[in-house]
């Protein structure tokens, strides 16, 4: 084992891992994060905590991770390179690890244009690939990005994101290879709706043997309504929602659409379980955390392994 991460143990054991996420509140009330965390207890192996998601100010990912850790849950610290330079990021990583946070997800972050502070400066001192490398060097070499030695280096299990659906498609496997060579341990993918395209990407991943270096968690987001399906199809950059899925959601009456969305998510997990290289699932039920237990159970992913 490279780290004390529960997620690493499960993935290394070859069992399918399950992660989900919690968006911290746009306020300072810790109860919000505690309630969301409680819904996921015993249902997932680690809980992602987003970092100023969609470039909107929220309670810091680090603080929210500490709340979850104090509840005995396994948090996964998301960190974007948009808001901090390498000094601040390393400081937060040391702080997170000191609180028993052992998982990280290294991201570049949504552009401020999409958030509530479009006037803010974009930091981008380093990018997500370089962040992965930095966290890896902190763990493996015991050094800071500046080269000095770290006393008690933080040993983070390092994650990244992968979007099989963005353009140019031919670069999507190569970009994962870049993250692998930077030292990423696992990736969580963008929400998958276009299964054939995902399989094509996954085949490319396996052909290069990348699935043996990097655990790939397939991203699943249940749709609440046909409106949401259309929104994701047309408005969210890098999202690929096939027409027949939108049609299927629209084909049932409004109050049954949420249930249909859950059915679709469960069916997708069932199908993706059989795909070579899929090491687990990352279920992003945006402001719908209470549905995660049902999805995980119906997908046959319960009980979670005890570690």
């Amino acid at each position: 084992m490279k780290t004390d991460s529960v997620l690493e143990k499960i993935l290394t054991s070859g069992q399918l891992a399950v992660t989900s996420e919690c968006g911290p509140p746009r306020g300072s009330d810790p109860e919000v994060i505690r309630k969301k965390g409680e819904l996921l207890r015993g249902v997932v192996d680690a809980v992602n905590v987003t970092d100023n998601q969609t470039a909107m100010v929220r309670m810091s990912s680090l603080a929210a991770c500490i709340h979850l850790r104090q509840m005995g849950l396994e948090p996964l610290l998301q960190m974007v390179t948009r808001d901090r330079n390498r000094l601040a990021m390393q400081a937060d990583i040391l702080g997170a690890y000191s609180h028993g946070v052992t998982n990280m997800l290294c991201l570049s972050g949504d552009h401020p244009k999409f958030g509530d502070h479009p006037m803010a400066a974009n930091v981008h001192d380093i990018d997500s690939v370089q962040l992965i490398k930095m966290v890896r060097d902190m763990r493996e070499e015991g050094t800071f990005a500046g080269g000095e030695e770290i006393k008690e280096p933080p040993k983070m299990f390092i994650g990244g994101a992968a979007n099989p659906f963005a353009d140019p498609f031919e670069l999507r496997v190569a970009r994962l290879a870049k993250k692998a060579s930077a030292g990423v341990d696992f990736v969580q993918t963008q929400c998958i709706y276009n299964i054939p395209k995902f399989k094509k990407w996954m085949k490319g991943v396996c052909d290069r043997g990348l699935h043996e270096q990097v655990h790939v968690l397939a991203g699943i987001t249940p749709m609440k309504s046909v409106g949401m399906a259309r929104y994701m199809k047309n408005k969210v950059p890098g999202m690929d929602v096939p027409d027949d899925l939108v049609k299927r959601m629209g084909g049932v009456e409004k109050k049954k659409q949420a249930a249909e969305g859950i059915d679709i998510a469960v069916e997708m997990i069932q199908e993706l379980k059989e795909v070579e290289g899929v090491a687990g699932f990352h279920i992003m039920a945006i402001e719908w955390e209470r549905k995660v237990p049902e999805i995980v159970e119906r997908a046959g992913l319960l009980p979670r392994p005890s570690t």
Binding site: K113, H124, D127, S128, F165, D167, P168
Partner: peptide, 20 residues
């Protein structure tokens, strides 16, 4: 690159255009 990525592209690239 809108995000100054040295190892891009990010997941927001579509049809040759930037997500912004």
């Amino acid at each position: 690159c809108s995000k100054r990525l040295m190892n891009g592209p990010c997941g927001g690239s579509g049809n040759g255009k930037c997500e912004i």
